[in-house]
């Protein structure tokens, strides 16, 4: 698709009111899901934007779906949509699956484990409007952004990996592996179609492909509070698969 026709389509959308569909892929998030939904409802309510929350649960054995159904009864099925799947199938297909039923013209993706705080969403939205950005990405590495609950080793790996990726890929965005982002719906659709990576690298590929397709990217500093419940992992395996993914992107984009 050329830049011209894409612009045209965006203009055509301006007549209708903006709506934001939040995609929440979950796996064993029974503890966190009610809390993240409560926070989303709170901040969307305060800011007055039109929204819906789409929960894509991949057959969690801990009863995440059951708690999601309770939330749907509390907040109505207009606001909370359930799109469960039988078993764990990658993140990319979760986005496709969730988007099929999304009625918003913007899609917000975030983690359901409370490491991404919904208070930043109104900032994402105003940043998007400011420059008519195709993608707005949360960043831990700029301005007031940061992390909580990381030791020195974790910070060193994160900064080192980020520096290496910046040198090799020059992606025009400071946080490549973050997964708290806002997309125009058709932009996310196109990106997901073209992204093949898994895990951390998937988020990186999304932003690198965005640059490749000449989409514009805005950034909002976010604080990343590491998993309050459950465990966060970053072992040798993650690092090896990250490097493999990085080199694959280096050679193919």
């Amino acid at each position: 698709m050329s830049a011209v026709s894409r612009r045209g389509k965006i203009r055509g959308d301006e007549g209708r009111r903006d709506k934001y569909s939040v995609l929440l892929p979950t796996y064993n998030e029974r503890e966190n899901l009610p809390l993240i939904v409560w926070l989303l409802v709170k901040y969307f309510g305060e800011s007055g934007y039109d929204y819906e929350i789409i929960i894509i649960d991949d057959g969690s054995p801990d009863g995440t779906l059951e708690v999601a159904q309770q939330l749907q009864r509390i907040y109505s099925s207009d606001k909370i949509l359930l799109r469960p799947r039988e078993k764990k199938l990658g993140l990319g297909t979760a986005y496709i699956h969730g988007m099929q039923h999304a009625s918003g013209n913007f899609i917000i993706i975030m983690d359901a484990d409370l490491s991404h705080h919904p208070k930043f969403i109104p900032e994402f939205i105003s940043k998007q409007k400011e420059g008519d950005f195709d993608v707005v990405s949360g960043t831990r590495y700029l301005g007031d952004g940061g992390v909580y609950g990381w030791d020195l080793k974790r910070k060193l790996i994160s900064r080192g990996a980020n520096f290496l990726s910046q040198v090799l890929l020059r992606p025009g965005a400071s946080d490549l592996t973050g997964s708290f982002r806002l997309y125009k719906k058709e932009v996310l659709q196109k990106l997901v179609e073209h992204c093949v990576s898994k895990g951390y690298v998937f988020q990186m590929e999304m932003i690198v492909r965005a640059r490749q397709f000449k989409y514009t990217i805005g950034e909002v500093p976010i604080s990343f509070v590491d998993r309050v419940y459950g465990e966060s992992k970053l072992g040798g395996n993650e690092i090896v698969s990250f490097l493999k993914g990085l080199l694959t992107l280096f050679a193919t984009t």
Partner: peptide, 10 residues
Amino acid sequence: VATFNDCEEA
């Protein structure tokens, strides 16, 4: 690494 913000308040 040295200037990575710790978000205690958050």
